[in-house]
Design a protein around this nucleic acid. Structure first.
Ligand code: MN
Ligand code: MN
Ligand code: MN
Ligand code: MN
Lengths: 231, 231
DNA sequence: AATTAAATTTAGACAAAGCTAAAAATAGAT
DNA sequence: ATCTATTTTTAGCTTTGTCTAAATTTAATT
């Protein structure tokens, strides 16, 4: 096989399933050369550990993961690069759906799961350009650049903010449909200014002021909202 | 299996391969209850007749084609509806790529082949709306409506136009990359006004006037350009 | 009507991606 | 250090979609 075909193999002949495994391994922390267990991957992907083992071998053969029997997998440099390019596509498509097609933030993930597998570098780049090179997706997750770098941000969980401190709501940790719908219903949106007024010791709930209005928020909610502290 | 799941099966559980077969059968004329042969489908899809036979059985079981052994297949009403919805998506995505992302008309087909399989009714409808409900794709092919109707148009091949008659170039019959690039190079584009000045008996070439400029065009070219006659 | 060429189907195999059940390895608890 | 409980892998089977080679049917020609 020629050198060019090795290139083609890696970049164009990745199956949808292989791409999904790489993405999951990355999300479970396998990008930092941490070993991710078969079971953890299986649980996350709602599949069986035996299936994960098979795929681990396949990805290892392709040089995308380091796999040690009974120990787990971690991404190689190539694997991490591939995972990041899929995550980049996923998040760009989510922005596109919200910004250009008026999808709500709880509708985009499912469609992006499909769109992230479309193979066309030009398409991604043009979508990126059309959206004016966004840095974050609709859930506040950073969009990797073409060369796989993240925009870092000084954010912390609302539940970890000190009393009286003020910040801007910049992301959600849990981006499940029910949580997102709950936030909509309570007018909690990214970009809103939040001040912690008071903490209730009993149940760790917070009294906050958001865009002028005062409200009470459970610990459950507060520990799933990212806030950027004002300078 | 519940009634609802039967619905789901037909509309959401179509595989990419099944969709491609339906589309091909439609393009070969199987939408007009004409029987399409195994060989014709195999040739068009660059696959083997035996593979087509297998798929014919599967699609027949699903009620999407009528299949008679040794005779060929034709689309059922359901099959035609499904084929048209995929063709609709394909052509809408092509318009999107050209209109919104500055793709050229020879770059869009390959990407649309992938995008046409994305499953989200809302996505198609929103793209349609974003594009202002286009009637034709970048190659002049009509875009089926949501309920599977085509916009008819009184068009004929340039090669069949009578001398002196005037029309507007509205479509290409051959939409291969080389032909489209040739047209670009010679400034022949959809929307241009064309008058047939003269026909050469020897090789059936035409002398035409296009947007003011005079040029000579081979029969090969003229028989792959659709023209709408002025009223 | 019989023969032959071409088209089509069948049979059997393979790769990808999944599953279940059984075997093997690891890690935790005595 | 040994024994379990848990995790992980292996072996073997399934489905989808493809292929090749062999068998069968149809269609064309004498
Ligand atoms: Mn998502
Ligand atoms: Mn997201
Ligand atoms: Mn096309
Ligand atoms: Mn087209």
């Amino acid at each position: 096989m020629s050198n060019k075909n090795v290139f083609l193999k890696k970049y164009f002949l990745m199956t949808r399933s292989e791409e999904n495994y790489l993405k999951t391994i990355f999300h479970l922390g396998g990008g930092d050369s941490k070993s991710i267990t078969t079971n953890a991957i299986a649980e996350q992907m709602e599949t069986k550990p035996s299936s994960v083992t098979d795929m681990a071998k396949k990805l290892s053969d392709k040089g995308l993961v380091d796999y040690v029997r009974y120990q787990g997998v971690s991404l190689t440099t190539e694997g991490k690069k591939t995972a990041l390019s899929i995550i980049r596509k996923h998040r760009l498509w989510e922005v596109f759906l919200v910004e250009k097609l008026d999808f709500s933030w709880d509708e985009v993930h499912e469609v992006a799961e499909q769109l992230e597998h479309i193979k066309s570098e030009k398409l991604v780049d043009k979508i990126d350009e059309l959206l004016n090179f966004p840095k974050y997706d609709p859930h506040g997750d950073p969009i990797p650049t073409k060369d796989g770098k993240f925009q870092e941000r000084d954010e912390k969980l609302l539940s970890e903010m000190s009393i009286k401190s003020i910040g801007i709501c910049v992301g959600v940790k849990d981006s499940s449909v029910p949580f997102l719908k709950f936030l909509d219903k309570n007018n909690i949106a990214l970009g809103n200014t939040i001040q912690v007024l008071d903490k209730e010791d009993f149940d760790n709930s917070l009294r906050i002021q958001m865009d002028g209005k005062e409200m009470r928020i459970s610990h459950q909610i507060a520990s799933n909202l990212y806030v950027k502290k004002n300078d």
